[in-house]
Amino acid sequence: MKTQLIELNINDQIYEIPITPVDLLVDVLRKKVGFTGTKKGCGQGDCGACTVLIDGKTALACITLAIACQGKKITTIEGVANKDGSLHPIQQSFVEHGAVQCGFCSPGMILSSKALLDSNPSPSELEVKRALSGNMCRCTGYILILEAVHAAAEKMAQAGVK
């Protein structure tokens, strides 16, 4: 298939990338741009490890065509921290609450959490569970992850973080 050059906006930077129309976003991010924080756990849209934000909404990069993301704003886990590299309150909360074990699901979990809290700053328990139900974790039993998200919501509300 013919390769073409496209522009993608990833984490507020414009990248010029040679792709074919069938290239998946997860492979483009990982192999062509080097954002390896986006993980590939199943390649079939089941596990949520490849979750990224497209225009602020969660998307599964392993079943998204890169070519379809032109003109959109893609946020990967590498784009979540503050400009100086210090952690976003959600990331900080994951670390402090023991919500991270092997860490393979963490990028996707954090992006799903961010999409939720950006649109719903004080979600109910069920709303958090629903928002994260497409992200599989096999280490933590989710319990401390859910705690971390609620704690982050509170902290962000207090600090007025967006």
Binding site: T36, L87, Q91, V95, G103
Partner: peptide
Amino acid sequence: RSIPRPDGPAKVSGATVYTDD
């Protein structure tokens, strides 16, 4: 002590390197 994991910040930032990375 319930020390938060030292590898936590890298893991939540997507900076941790796994084999396929």
